[in-house]
């Protein structure tokens, strides 16, 4: 199949960027979208042009390195699929696909489609953990945890930190990412202990990074490769108010 691409090219953080048109004449429906970009890059290299830079690592939808706006949607049109697992069978021969980086003030562009998402690490560093040092743990079965609770915690823990939630949010909010970690740890007895400190610290860090406010569009849930529910954001707010009331 022939695929036309309109790809965002940008030299560096301060340089202006623009969409550039390319054609990949020999695409296959079995290719992943990133393999299509690989083929494009080999083509560009052969023509003496600079390849398109983009981040990717595991290419099986779990590391969260990749993240592109494909045809106007974070990670592209297929639900619950990171762009590395988006296959070209989702497109038609002759399609023109626009590819842009994830955009947010807190995610500055490094080059082309590569952005800096270290703001997420700083949110986790703010308090996205259980303060336990190595060696101090009691037996793993010492505290029983209801299966449903463990399952729900797992649903939130599956966040891959790709940033699609921010990219898709009309406000550029990081609420789903932040809430997923707060909900995951807050549901478990091990993490619940320091829930009030956690939620305050993480929410404040999210604010300091310059992410936008949440307007409950739930666009984040729609693009999340793991389908994490915005109910997590509600529970983050409950935890926040609880912290506020308990001082």
């Amino acid at each position: 199949m022939i695929i036309n691409l309109r790809v965002w090219r940008q030299e560096g953080p301060e340089s202006p960027g623009k969409l550039v048109d390319y054609t990949v004449p020999e695409a296959s429906e079995h290719m992943s979208f990133l393999e299509l970009l690989d083929v494009l890059n080999e083509q560009l290299l052969a023509d003496g042009e600079e390849p398109v830079e983009f981040d990717s690592d595991c290419r099986e939808g779990i590391c969260g390195s990749c993240g592109l706006m494909v045809a106007g949607i974070a990670h592209g049109p297929q639900k619950r699929t990171a762009v590395c697992q988006l296959h070209m069978r989702s497109f038609k021969d002759g399609d023109t696909i626009t590819v842009e980086p994830f955009r947010a003030r807190a995610f500055p562009v490094i080059r082309d489609l590569v952005v800096d998402r270290s703001a997420f690490d700083r949110i986790i560093t703010a308090h996205g953990y259980v303060s336990v040092t190595t060696g101090s743990a009691p037996d793993a079965n010492a505290i029983p945890i209801p299966k449903d609770t463990a399952d729900e915690a797992m649903d939130y823990a599956t966040c891959i930190g790709c940033g699609a939630c921010v990219a898709a949010c009309p406000n550029g909010s990081a609420s789903l990412f932040t809430a997923a970690k707060i909900a995951h740890l807050g549901l478990l007895p091990q993490g619940e202990v320091e829930s009030p400190q956690r939620v305050t610290a993480m929410v404040n860090q999210m604010d300091a990074e310059g992410f936008g406010d949440c307007s409950n569009y739930a666009e984040c849930e729609a693009v999340c490769p793991k389908g994490i529910s915005v109910a997590g954001i509600a529970s983050m707010r409950r935890a926040y108010m609880k912290g506020l009331l308990s001082g």
């Binding site: 309109r6 106007g72 842009e100 955009r103 947010a104």
Partner: peptide, 9 residues
């Protein structure tokens, strides 16, 4: 402020 450069699409 949160998204100074908008999407083309």
């Amino acid at each position: 402020q949160a998204r100074p450069v908008g999407y083309k699409m």
